[in-house]
Structures are given as structure tokens and as C-alpha cells.
């Protein structure tokens, strides 16, 4: 039986209250809680959900009922933000992510928490923006981009931030996102195992670190 939403919301609110930068939290509905911050920073509202895939259909009704929310937290560590889920959060002027991202947003002491963007995505998007072989890119999921290159084949790229990148990570990415060309290791200390490399090879997928990825964007 799924865990009642109010229990999950209360648990997340407790976790956030225990972080040093949040002075207190208060549950305001089964799906929301308020974060009261120190240093005269404005308080803000958080929406909590537990979805394996965050879509428009799941998120929009919750945000329509909670108009003052600035941050949407999806509890599952491996939860997937679909394109429609991301668009829904942005259309409601909300930042989004997991509990770790909410903690980062609080730690950054942003005046307006809704402006928070996950560091991993911001870094990759800036690199793509500045690459001479990239005309534009589309974000299909929080971890998947299609990169368009003038006169060359577009590349479908999955971001994986694991320290030890295993065969199971590669297979799960394929199950979750369908076929792709590249696994981009966004953890600078990340290393693929031999099994991960072998699995990727059978899928005709390249596992690349950041600098290798930038080079690959320039080749056919």
C-alpha cells in the first residue's frame, strides 16, 4: 500500500528542519509545507510528491490547488521528470528536484527559491550553449537531452551522475528513456565498470566524460 502523502510530507519537512540553514518548517496541507528561513530570507512553500514519473497529469492538479508553491520535491531518488512535468513546474514558476536539490536551494540562500536550477543541468546546458557544433538542444527528461548539430546527426544524451557507473545503471537508463547515443558521466570522479562498458558496447552507446563529450559533439 502506498505511503499516505501527509506522512511523506511530514517526513520531508522534518528532514529539512534538521538542516542548518532552515530555521523551521510547518506542514500546511497533506502535500505541502512551509520553510521559514533565517537571515531575514523570505519563507517559501514546498510541494511534496512521490512519483516514479512526474508528468503534467500528476503535477498540474496539485499545483492548481497550491498556488503559492515555489519548489516541487519528488521524493524517489530515481524518479523521472518528464518534459511535460518540467514544463508544468516552470509554468507555475516553481523550481523542482529531489530532497537533495531542495537542501541545495536552501543552502544557496536564494532570495527567490523558484530560480533554483540543479547545478548538474546548469553546467551541461551552459556547455551546450557555448559549443560551436551545437545549434540547439531539447530537454526531454531531467536527465535526457537531444543535441542538434548543424549538418550532423543529432545525439540523444543521458546524464548519469554516479560515482561507480554500473551495467545496471546503463540498462535502467535504456529501460527508462529508450534508445540513446551517449551516457555523459556528470560526476567528475565517476568511473564506469568493465560490465558497464561492455553493456554500453552491446547497445552501441558511448560512455563519455565531459571533455570527451565536448570532442564528440564535433565529430560525425
Amino acid at each position: 500500500m502506498p505511503r499516505p502523502p501527509q506522512d511523506t510530507t511530514a517526513w520531508v519537512a522534518d528532514r529539512i528542519a534538521e538542516t542548518t540553514d532552515a530555521s523551521s518548517t510547518k506542514v500546511t496541507s497533506p502535500f505541502t509545507f512551509r520553510v521559514n528561513r533565517e537571515d531575514r530570507l523570505p519563507s517559501f512553500e514546498v510541494l511534496v510528491l512521490s512519483a516514479s514519473r512526474v508528468t503534467y497529469e500528476i503535477l498540474d492538479p496539485l499545483l492548481e490547488d497550491a498556488r503559492s508553491v515555489s519548489f516541487v520535491v519528488n521524493v524517489p531518488k530515481n524518479g523521472i521528470w518528464t518534459e511535460s512535468g518540467i514544463a508544468t513546474a516552470r509554468n507555475h514558476d516553481c523550481a523542482f528536484g529531489g530532497i537533495g536539490e531542495l537542501m541545495s536551494a536552501i543552502h544557496q540562500k536564494l532570495e527567490d527559491v523558484s530560480l533554483f536550477i540543479k547545478k548538474e543541468n546548469a553546467f551541461v546546458e551552459r556547455g551546450l550553449d557555448q559549443h560551436s557544433n551545437v545549434s540547439h538542444f531539447d530537454q526531454e527528461y531531467d536527465r535526457v537531452y537531444t543535441v542538434h548539430r548543424p549538418g550532423m546527426k543529432s545525439l540523444r544524451v543521458v546524464l548519469l551522475n554516479e560515482y561507480e557507473l554500473t551495467a545496471e545503471h546503463v540498462r535502467t537508463a535504456r529501460t527508462n528513456y529508450g534508445p540513446f547515443d551517449i551516457v555523459l558521466m556528470t560526476n567528475p570522479n565517476g568511473t564506469p565498470t568493465k560490465d558497464a562498458l561492455e553493456t554500453a558496447k552491446t547497445m552501441q552507446v558511448a560512455i563519455l566524460a565531459w571533455r570527451q563529450f565536448l570532442g564528440r559533439l564535433g565529430s560525425r
Binding site: P2, S50, P76, N78, I99, E164, E168, T193
Partner: peptide, 10 residues
């Protein structure tokens, strides 16, 4: 799905 479990399978 219920908790923020980082499940690493090796």
C-alpha cells in the same frame, strides 16, 4: 518510490 533510497546494484 516511498523514500529517497539511492539503490546501487552491482
Amino acid at each position: 518510490n516511498d523514500w529517497p533510497v539511492h539503490l546501487l546494484i552491482m
